[in-house]
Design a protein around this nucleic acid. Structure first.
Lengths: 201, 201
DNA sequence: GCATCAATCAAACAAACATCCGATCACTTG
DNA sequence: CAAGTGATCGGATGTTTGTTTGATTGATGC
């Protein structure tokens, strides 16, 4: 990693922070410059324009996320454990680098061509992985697979709007609750033991 | 309803459309003026400033949504049917007036005091209703109630990012799939079938 | 037919914006 | 030391922003 690359990483960190806090549109080049302690003009040594900064942040974040998930899934075979791996990997990444994931979920729609197409490709890649995990459950149909996958993404991507550090438990606990919800639902008692609707373990 | 109020409704419709399409920050007063076929200055007869327009759109949308949900739930007693009612009401509203709901979910964070506090109160009201529905399921704990409620919101609020008209089925079908997922999960076969003694905890 | 009043407009305002540019600065290399 | 080079800066540019202002219109009441 060259010195230039290191500096660029630092710039992208600052971008993610500012984009996550104010959103792409109301984040000004001067805001970013202040966050990385550089002049506005100086930023243009690490990007071609403001839009390019958003692209670089999204690209880096998506690639990290996909790499982590592929690594995590490579050790696990059981479908239920693989589902847990999806949740815990994404949530761990979120707690680890919240600004990047917030930028990714909140500002994707601010991307313009041609960068938007490349990022959408990464998004598709991520979708296929998660969808593949869900597809291994028996009894799932084509339409319910799509809805279930999108519902899962919605659940995960919504976390940043309500999660509070120190109050809401770590990634493992959150992932456990969500996995249980997706596997067994809210009313397993109704379904499995109609004679004792109150029983739960 | 006075003529002024009617005209104001028309202005808010245009705002919702522009906000949903471009986002609050990059939607200009002139964009909105063009959408409602009025001059930029003329808009200020229906608001005190741009921020006020966002507030009015959010306020109107949230109140409609809450009213619809309260009405719908008032006819239903069974917990499982009440859960379906939550899904189908929200999704119907989304398919009915997508711009308002998109503005609500995408631009809430652009609200500033004092309007933001008032909207947050409506949000809290909506949360309490939905949380109450989920709380009626046996075996749900305090933390899992919070996570389940937020997961439900995430699922619903994410729909606008992937739904495609004419391809993805109506509100009732979507609500049915989601309700089934939340009630029974992906692996009811694993849990209930006698041939599969293993279960997750 | 005159006065009132709300609704609307075009024009103008300062502020903020992304971007560009010439001038330095801190270095390595000969 | 001299020359060269990449990084960074402050300032300037032209555009767009939200908002204000003063004038104009069209209808209503007298």
């Amino acid at each position: 990693m060259t010195a230039y690359d290191q500096r660029r990483e630092h710039v992208l960190d600052g971008c993610a922070q500012v984009f996550a806090e104010k959103g792409y549109d109301s984040a000004s080049i001067r805001d970013i410059a202040r966050a990385v302690e550089m002049s506005a003009g100086g930023l243009y040594h690490y990007c071609s324009n403001k839009q390019d900064l958003l692209y670089q942040v999204c690209d880096r974040a998506f690639r990290s996320l996909i790499a982590r998930l592929e690594e995590g899934l490579s050790h696990v075979d059981d479908p239920q454990e693989r589902l847990y791996t999806v949740f815990v990997t994404h949530l761990t990444y979120f707690l680890d680098r919240p600004d990047e994931l917030i930028t990714l979920t909140e500002n994707l729609s601010s991307l313009t061509p041609p960068g938007s197409a490349k990022i959408r490709e990464l998004q598709r890649c991520y979708y296929d992985i998660v969808s593949g995990v869900l597809a291994s459950f028996p009894g799932i149909t084509a339409t319910s697979l799509r809805v279930a996958t999108m519902t899962l993404f919605g659940s995960i991507n919504w976390v940043h709007t309500w999660y509070r550090r120190g109050i809401d438990g770590g990634a493992d606990e959150l992932a456990r609750v969500m996995t249980d919800l997706f596997l067994n639902g809210l009313a397993p008692a109704y379904k499995c033991s109609p004679s004792s609707p109150k029983h739960v373990d």
